[in-house]
Simulated assay, not measured.
Amino acid sequence: MQTTLDTPGGDDPASSREPLASSEQVRPTRRRSSPARTWIVTILLVLGACVVLLPFVVAVSMAFKTEAQAVQGQAFALPSPWSIEGFQQAWTLTSFPRSFAISLVVTASATVGTVLLSAMASYAISRNWNRRLFRWSFFYLLAAMFLPFPVLALSQVKLTGMVGLANPGGVVLLHIMFQMSFSVLLFTAFLRSLPEELEESARIDGASTWRTFWTVVFPLMMPMAATVGIFAMLKGWNDFMMPSMIIADPALQTLPVIQQVFQDQFSNNYHVSFASYLLAIVPAIFAYVLSQRWVMSGLTQGAIK
């Protein structure tokens, strides 16, 4: 004697296929881009690449030319023969090792200071948002974004001279101050996406607030720290106005200021000027290439809660 078990839907094959059919109906269809749209996007990307790469190609071509080739005015012609004469003169005229070292110290100090101070300030603000003091501190920092350095240049020059900071150290301090607002904004948005349960677990295990921040929170903030760091690095490395107005000793000037000092001398020697500019932008390009993955990760994670 055979017994059968009753199953939902019985033995009807059609009833057993109904859930599968319904699931296929609700599955979203993938929208295919039309060939015309693909061509338009491709053309726009090629044009954008040409706009960015064409000046760089001209700079490289002019830098490797001789003085006789540079004065001919054929910017798009390739060097024939290739020469490093411009790099040798730029190295000597700009005192490149000294100015490069000063710019490197200023940029590295400003970048590290901006990342650390902004991260700690953002953590305090985001975790104490219900307290009025911290909330208004955040608004105060945001308001500082509307005060660029040229507006406060005269007062900053006066103050740094009075306290003995008319040197690269004063430039580092001012860079950190003027980059705090934007950096705190990025860090605060990123911290709101981190679960607070991780910090609570660390506190249950006996960790203090200071240790919780450095061992649990700050490692999770590394994508955004890379984003803030690359912005601070580019600002500190390429800045011309602040060092030129703050640093009183010409021997302690950064590389962009030294290049401006020799602009009249480079006005007729285009291969020397372009060689000097290439020497200055190589560290920034190298740093961005190394950290671009973390930069994009920090921007996307900070935008999604």
Results as ranks from 00 to 15, higher is better:
Ser201Tyr: 02
Leu147Val: 12
Thr188Trp: 07
Pro81Ala: 11
Val228Lys: 04
Ala207Leu: 12
Thr114Ile: 13
Thr254Phe: 04
Arg32Ser: 15
Val151Pro: 02
Leu198Arg: 09
Arg132His: 00
Thr300Asn: 09
Val115Ser: 10
Ser201Met: 03
Trp91Pro: 12
Ser273Pro: 02
Gln89Lys: 13
Phe286Met: 13
Ser183Val: 00
Leu174Gln: 15
Ser33Cys: 13
Lys305Tyr: 08
Met221Phe: 02
Ala124Leu: 05
Thr38Glu: 15
Asn167Val: 10
Asn128Glu: 00
Tyr270Ser: 14
Lys65Trp: 08
Phe64Arg: 08
Ile281Glu: 13
Leu165Ile: 08
Asp11Met: 09
Met1Thr: 06
Val26Thr: 14
Met145Lys: 07
Phe87Arg: 08
Asn269Thr: 06
Thr188Ala: 12
Gln2Pro: 09
Glu200Ile: 00
Thr215Ser: 08
Gly302Arg: 12
Leu194Ile: 15
Ile125Pro: 02
Asp239Thr: 01
Glu18Ile: 13
Phe149Trp: 05
Phe182Thr: 10
Leu104Met: 11
Leu20Gln: 11
Leu290Asp: 05
Asn269Ile: 01
Ser244Glu: 04
Phe182His: 06
Val58Tyr: 13
Ala90His: 12
Ser23His: 05
Val217Leu: 03
Ala77Asn: 07
Pro97Trp: 00
Val71Arg: 15
Gln260Cys: 00
Gln260Val: 05
Thr94Gln: 11
Phe187Asp: 13
Gly161Phe: 12
Val257Ile: 07
Pro19His: 10
Ala287Val: 11
Ala280Phe: 15
Gly298Thr: 07
His175Pro: 00
Ile304Phe: 12
Gln72Phe: 00
Ala202His: 07
Ala153Asn: 04
Val295Asp: 03
Val257Asn: 12
Leu45Lys: 06
Phe87Pro: 03
Pro79Lys: 06
Ser122His: 03
Pro81Lys: 10
Phe266Glu: 06
Lys65Leu: 09
Gln74Arg: 13
Arg30Thr: 10
Phe146Val: 06
Gly169Tyr: 11
Asp239Val: 04
Ser80Lys: 08
Ser80Trp: 04
Val52Ser: 11
Ile40His: 10
Met120Trp: 01
Leu279Ser: 11
Ser83Phe: 01
Lys235Pro: 00
Phe178Leu: 15
Gly229Phe: 04
Leu279Arg: 12
Gln179Thr: 14
Gly206Gln: 07
Ala153Pro: 04
Thr111Tyr: 04
Ser193His: 13
Asp264Met: 13
Val216Leu: 06
Pro28Thr: 05
Ala226Asn: 02
Trp82Tyr: 14
Leu234Tyr: 01
Arg203Met: 07
Phe274Asn: 14
Leu78Pro: 01
Ala119Val: 06
Arg37Gly: 15
Asn268Ala: 15
Leu185Ser: 11
His271Asp: 11
Pro55Glu: 08
Trp82His: 11
Ala287Cys: 08
Leu5Gln: 04
Arg135Gly: 01
Ile230Cys: 00
Met180Tyr: 04
Ser122Gln: 00
Met241Cys: 03
Phe266Met: 10
Ala226Asp: 05
Glu196Met: 14
Pro243Gln: 08
Gln265Trp: 10
